[in-house]
Design a protein around this nucleic acid. Structure first.
Lengths: 145, 145
DNA sequence: TCCTAAATAAGAATAATTATTATTTAAAAT
DNA sequence: ATTTTAAATAATAATTATTCTTATTTAGGA
């Protein structure tokens, strides 16, 4: 099930993106994170095996991936942007205590929103994306504190 | 209908917040904006009448208002945070071209989401807030370009 | 293998936000 | 009405995330 180096090479070339080692490595690491890493976190996690890759390249590559719909930005009340390799849209649960973002799978809710908006339409607005963030606290955490 | 200086003084004191001139002025200006200003924009708009108020105070006061539920943070893909004096939750339309945030009034949709989540419940998560951002482009703008 | 445009490394620059500290102020106590 | 005192503020330095600059390197086509 692991996505290999050459899998990613092919994918990038399909999209007309030049395949470079930094790009493949960054995308590979983003895919491996099941949380939602910041650029900094990806940079750190890459250092071990690829010490040469600079933080600026991480930022540029992540933006490139977003532009090509291989990843998306996740914004919260936090001060830094996080990235997500999941391209299918999904709901984010944001825990205000731990600042962690969890994916929440609920196709029914998502379709509910999408259908409603499509049926009703929003005047003077072409919808391109729905972003639903549910803020709160994870219960297990609350017990601990 | 204008919210007066002393209206705001009372409101702050009700909440046990010390009423100071910078605080009243900042909140008053936030209420007057119908867009969603950044801390910087509020600071600039205050300079005319109250040149002494520092940007740091604007930041601190806005955070205070958020903590006391008199305002809320609005985050988008943009790099800076915006503030909103509307406390009732509502939907934001975010135009990717102009970077403008518009309020979108749709109590039915909001109730739809809220009901669905309440009925179903999310395992291990206490929901405190729903934040729905609809990304897209305003149609009138598209014609112009 | 060579060529060239594009990508990268390294670090400087920028922009938003937060921290520091000496001074000022709101409001409670006198 | 004064005095007192903890909290708030101004001014600005510091920090943090992100972007920019430029000399060097590299991918992939000729």
């Amino acid at each position: 099930m692991e996505v290999t180096f050459s899998d990613i090479q092919s994918k990038l070339r399909e999209l007309g993106i030049k395949s470079t080692i930094p790009r493949v490595v960054i995308y590979q690491h983003l895919l491996k994170f099941n949380r939602h890493p910041s650029a900094e976190e990806i940079h750190v996690s890459i250092q071990k095996k690829y010490p040469g890759v600079s933080l600026a390249t991480v930022y540029k590559t992540l933006d490139l991936l977003v532009q090509n719909h291989l990843a998306s930005k996740v914004v919260t009340d936090e001060d830094k942007v996080r990235y997500d390799a999941r391209t299918e849209s999904h709901i984010h649960l944001y825990c205000e205590k731990t600042k962690k973002i969890m994916d929440y799978e609920d196709d029914v809710l998502e379709q509910l929103i999408r259908n409603y908006i499509e049926k009703k339409g929003i005047p003077n607005f072409d919808l391109t994306g729905i972003q639903l963030n549910l803020k709160g606290q994870s219960k297990t955490l609350k017990k601990q504190q």
